[in-house]
Design a protein around this nucleic acid. Structure first.
Lengths: 191, 191
DNA sequence: TCTGTGACCAAAATACAAAAACGGTCAGAC
DNA sequence: GTCTGACCGTTTTTGTATTTTGGTCACAGA
């Protein structure tokens, strides 16, 4: 395992556990078993280190989602399969939750900017697929940017706020709610 | 206009403008044109004053929503009419937005508790009507508590987060999105 | 020669004491 | 009996001393 990888994984773990402000470069160095200066041979600043980790996370998640998309299948089948795949990545979710919390509570600029970029990446990804879905007739015409926004917010609201008040939803239950609300709609009398 | 009314409206205005911590009892007294002691003849504490205002707000909004519900009409028509009515109450929305922000950022206990009670009231109201809708066949069977939660979160996310990044949605546009997403569902191929 | 390092520095965060502001009370004015 | 603002103990803010932190670099080891 090379030095950079050790540094990145140490930082990722520390960010997840203690947040951005709560992790010191010295501590990252200690966990990674390197000198502090070594970190700066790979990353010019703490902020750059965070950005690298978030970029990696976005690329990784996009690959996972892409991997569960089947070319010929319908938009909603693909969406639900991708959702189920993404849901498995607990560590990544924990990191994002921790950073989102820190951003709102402490207002750390680097964190807010980083999270904004992650959110933008997810929204673009969702919107792109929604538009393709609209284009090929799977999805009703709609404001795709706004719908993507609503989907993401619903996802995070359930995983963060709901589960802090009630016992966590099983993956199946979450999938089912997404299906009933977004795919089918709640209206029983056909539109 | 009697004293208590003056106090309540002064406090409401100040809470909306400066938040809970940002308003002092002395300032409320000055705006209301009363002595500070007078406030304490009506309310035993600042926290009680906030609770009174939030209770009043909940009662008021419930009355507005109830007022736009027509007994014989479908659940979704009633929902959309109620939404449109509630949407008009800008001042109340501003107060809630300000307090929600303060609760998350400063962690003020009184604010967090008060907002939790408001949210619970709204969720109960929504859930009650969703259950009635399921019972009479307008709404598909679903986890009504969770769906109520998703609807409220979507509503606030659009009004708070969306409008801070994009130009505000017109009431009509918001209604349309709600209709397409929740009522009809996004799936074009009939379920 | 080149990768990796920890003592070192300016800047930022923290801890702490003095001062100001605040929520709440109450003797008294009207 | 209603309403009030000077007053009190407590909390919050402010100014400052001290510590911690992000970042650098001269140098050690291979």
């Amino acid at each position: 395992m090379d030095l950079q990888m050790r540094v990145v994984e140490a930082a990722e773990q520390s960010f997840r556990q203690f947040g951005y402000k709560g992790t010191t470069m010295e501590n990252v160095a200690r966990i990674a078993n390197v000198g502090k200066g070594t970190i700066y041979t790979f990353f010019p600043s703490k902020e750059a280190l965070l950005e690298h980790i978030l970029n990696r996370l976005v690329v990784e998640m996009r690959a996972v989602a892409d991997g569960s998309i089947v070319a010929g299948d319908t938009f909603f089948n693909n969406l639900e399969r991708a959702l189920r795949s993404v849901l498995r990545f607990r560590a990544q979710h924990e990191l994002l939750v921790k950073l989102a919390q820190e951003g709102k509570q402490l207002g750390t600029v680097a964190v807010i900017e980083g999270m904004a970029r992650v959110e933008e990446a997810v929204l673009n990804y969702l919107r792109k697929h929604l538009e393709a879905g609209v284009a090929n007739g799977d999805v009703k015409p709609c404001n795709t940017e706004l719908v993507a926004f609503i989907m993401l917010r619903t996802y995070t609201a359930i995983l963060v706020d709901w589960e802090s008040r009630h016992e966590p939803l099983s993956d199946d239950a979450l999938m089912q709610v997404f299906h009933v609300v977004f795919t089918e709609g709640l209206n029983r009398t056909q539109a």
